[in-house]
Amino acid sequence: MATVAEPNKNLKTGLKYLLLVLVALVFLFPMVFMVVSSLKPDLQLLRDTSSIAAFLPVGDISLDNYFAAFRRAPIGLFVFNSVFVTGLTVIGSLFLCSLAGFAFAFLEFRGKNLVLSIVIATLIVPFETIAVPMLMVVNTLPFVGPNGLQWGWLNTYHVQIVPFLADALTIFLFVQYFRDLPKELIEAARLDGATWFQVYAMVIMPIAGPVIATAAILKFLAMYNQYLWPLMVTQSEQFRPVMVGLQYFFQLNTAWGEVMAYLSLITLPVLAFYLFLQRAFIASIASTGIKG
């Protein structure tokens, strides 16, 4: 019997892997196309799009597009701005939203469910509808910085960070995760005399790795891909992020090779961040059923 079952099992495994490889290729092809195209001159790039050559590093291959892209735009500055703004926002957001999630999950206070409902309800408000009012608000806010008190937040880093430090999705993720944790952990800590902040910092957060990874990746992607808001609030090149920088490459005659080179470069921080957190991210998806 075992000899009959063995080939069937091998066939099934083979088919499974074949399917997985095909699915992987579907997801990999755009990346391969982007990187390969970044090495080709424009005319060849456009001609190759009608054949399999689009995915192959063939023909006139060079790094010229990368050199030209660096001449066209201050790519290093844009990447720094995006990573700086995104990094600070992710860190701040994880801290504030996990605190809020902790409060909604474990503390008892009047109107808790109503407040949580209102917070979650804000998920359905598209950002575009509040962008202009937000612009008018931040344009009149005070800020104390190295140059003393200043009015108006335009053309700064904090105008790209502060409005996004707390958001409903991240709070919701933490609430859901915290609610599934065993209550005994908290009760034991409280019986041992721990304050609520100690419970948060020393009991709950150390075992919240998966949700932290999930929230961090989702927030990172949302912030790194920001376009409309930075476009509205950063009139100075000094503060522009990568997505606004991408527009530098669309001229009357678009240099597609340079576009692909730029995209390849700005994708690197995202890939690095995802690879760094991917194990925890997958664990989180498996445990909470949340699909990023």
Binding site: L135, M136, L231, M232, V233, Q235, V244, Q247, F250
Partner: peptide, 21 residues
């Protein structure tokens, strides 16, 4: 001088007009 990418330029001007700068 302050330069803007062409695709984003009109939106930037409209936003600046709203903000009064």
């Amino acid at each position: 001088l302050q330069e803007f990418p062409q695709i984003a330029y009109n939106d930037s001007v409209v936003a600046a007009a709203v903000a009064g700068n």
